[in-house]
Design a protein around this nucleic acid. Structure first.
Lengths: 342, 342
DNA sequence: TATCATTACATTAACGATAATGTTACAAAA
DNA sequence: TTTTGTAACATTATCGTTAATGTAATGATA
């Protein structure tokens, strides 16, 4: 059907091996022959069969990416960051969504490994450590993004969640806030814990007690944020004497839900209560009010991960120790936070 | 390194072929042997080498998807729709962004074809017909999503843009609007033209002249929408006598830009001018005001495309004619449109 | 002059799976 | 009894590529 090395070899009356080596610029093929082979290959429209090549070399030139949900802009920007570097080195990407589900995550990983990917990028779903074992057994390099396997070491790139929490606390404190609600993802997610630690660290530096921060958990979605915020508001002694003057949300998604809950109680952001998000979704400057948030720079995280991946593939990491990279987040000031009313 | 058919064969003292056929439930292998082989395969942790399998069968069990930008939720939802169907049939997906750039689109396609994908989903970028030739030559089934190759036939799934334009016009007309601005993507994009045709069709049915609709073109981004709207507003005789009472935007992105431009002139949506978007981005109900828009149901488009793909792969399409599927869009009513002030 | 490199190729054997074709043992049919 | 059929396997060749090894011709070296 399509042109193979054999076709070129027959056309030129040389061996298949010569064609293969000529196309790969091997030094033991004469310059004239090399040129001739390349011209003929181009003329016939030869394209290398990468699967066949893989069979001999065990280099598939494919990398796998597993994310919870590609519709989440955080992950799609990570994807693009990774792709940016991969395109330069003509690696192709296989993508799979785990939907935050351990079984799906595991199935997708297996599938990619069966296809012989040369490496895997994984944004782990919740508490799934099976993936870790899978990846270790597979004997391919892998980079974990954003969420840590609890207690396990790996090549790892993440936004500095501690710093993000710290920045958020600093911003709110400087506006005069002294009582806070942190609507968090479940605390077994390392990011959730780290952000809390950073948040508390700033407050403690400024002599606030731990009791200054209430914590509520939900899954990082709009409905999650809505439900928790609604419940919290219902339990307040009165809408004019809320037990927190600022809400620190685990994600912009959560913040959107919080907006809705606050609106339901006829309160205003930021006059009655300040809200700060996390992630800086593409549209968070279009919300009303525009959402103050922390940008984790997912594109940068993706690029950094890919660079580490290629170091691993090219064996630059000869001592075998795991690499951990941390990207500093950026506070994005908008209109959902204001100084606390006197 | 990893377990092969050979390992299983040696373990059981049978031939490699027997192992292969047993695992595939071929009828000429005895039931006992089949069971034994399967147990052993499971015990040793055998995983099929899909690349090697491909070499014989020319079925790679991979499909390629090329989109302009996976960060655009329209495309990420299409991806998920496709993935939904593919997971059921254990196909794996290769994803590539073209960034709306013909060269990148072409390069990504080549790359996927070199990897031996069994089929390709393509959301074409702008006016690139080279892809069409590439896909035809490649001799793999392909499905085009959303944007038509001008003048060329292909298996094709799209939202009914004509209907979407019609719905938008109907909604605005019923609110009393009689003069419109259509901020469109370039008209060589079939969707842009179709939406215009649908929009005009409704108006003509209600005895409005073509001059009731002004058309301005931009690329479908926030900045594109912002620039065009700003320019239009600057050219108006006065801000209290705009030459259109409603703006029909090619996408929600454009609408966000239009919002910004309108705000810059201290006008209000929808009191001073109504705005309707297109696509129903995930956050369009969080904007201020919440954006009335047309949902193209990208997840459904993805699923439909995948179904067609598997019909093609399984040769159910024996007469060789191209299949075209059209998904009806849905009007989403929110707060950016209101009855025209008297 | 005989030996040794070197250049530029060709030949052969894999990679892991599968399709096509053989082979054996046993049972059924003539 | 001989033929024929069939169930249940084994053997062999092949997909397209690449690594390992082989070889002929030429030139350099001892």
């Amino acid at each position: 059907m399509s042109i193979t090395l054999k076709d070129i070899a027959e056309e030129l009356n040389v061996s298949v091996n010569t064609v293969s080596r000529a196309l790969r610029n091997m030094p033991d093929i004469g310059q004239e022959t090399t040129n001739l082979v390349k011209e003929t290959a181009a003329r016939l429209g030869y394209r290398k069969n990468l699967a066949a090549s893989y069979l001999k070399t065990t280099k598939s030139m494919m990398l796998g990416i597993v994310v919870p949900d590609i519709c989440n802009p955080v992950f799609s920007y990570m994807y693009k960051g990774i792709e940016k570097i991969c395109t330069e080195t003509s690696y192709t990407l296989m993508l799979g969504n785990s939907n935050g589900n351990p079984e799906e995550e595991s199935a997708v990983l297996s599938n990619m490994l069966d296809h012989g990917v040369d490496g895997i990028f994984l944004v782990p779903g919740m508490k799934n450590t099976q993936s870790h074992a899978q990846l270790e057994n597979a004997n391919v390099p892998y980079v974990i993004l954003q969420r840590k396997f609890p207690g396990l070491s790996a090549n790892f790139v993440q936004s500095n969640d501690y710093e993000g929490g710290y920045l958020a606390a600093q911003h709110l404190y400087q506006l005069g806030h002294r009582s806070f609600l942190y609507i968090s993802a479940p605390m077994y997610i390392s990011s959730a814990q780290d952000r809390y630690n950073g948040f508390m660290a700033y407050l403690k530096e400024n002599d606030l007690a731990e009791s200054a921060v209430q914590i509520l958990e939900c899954d990082s979605t709009r409905t999650g944020g809505y439900k928790v915020a609604k419940k919290w508001l219902e339990q307040q002694p009165g809408l004019d004497c809320l037990s927190a003057t600022a809400i620190f949300c685990f994600s912009d998604y959560v913040a959107y839900g919080v907006y809705s809950a606050i609106a339901k109680f006829n309160l205003r952001v930021p006059e009655d209560i300040s809200v700060i998000g996390y992630d800086n979704n593409e549209y968070s400057d279009m919300t009303f009010p525009a959402l103050t948030t922390v940008d984790i720079l997912p594109y940068k995280i993706g690029k950094q991960s890919a660079k580490i991946m290629f170091d691993l593939i090219n064996n630059k990491n000869n001592n075998g120790e795991h690499i951990e990279a941390v990207i500093s987040p950026k506070l994005i000031l908008r209109n959902s936070t204001k100084e606390v009313s006197p």
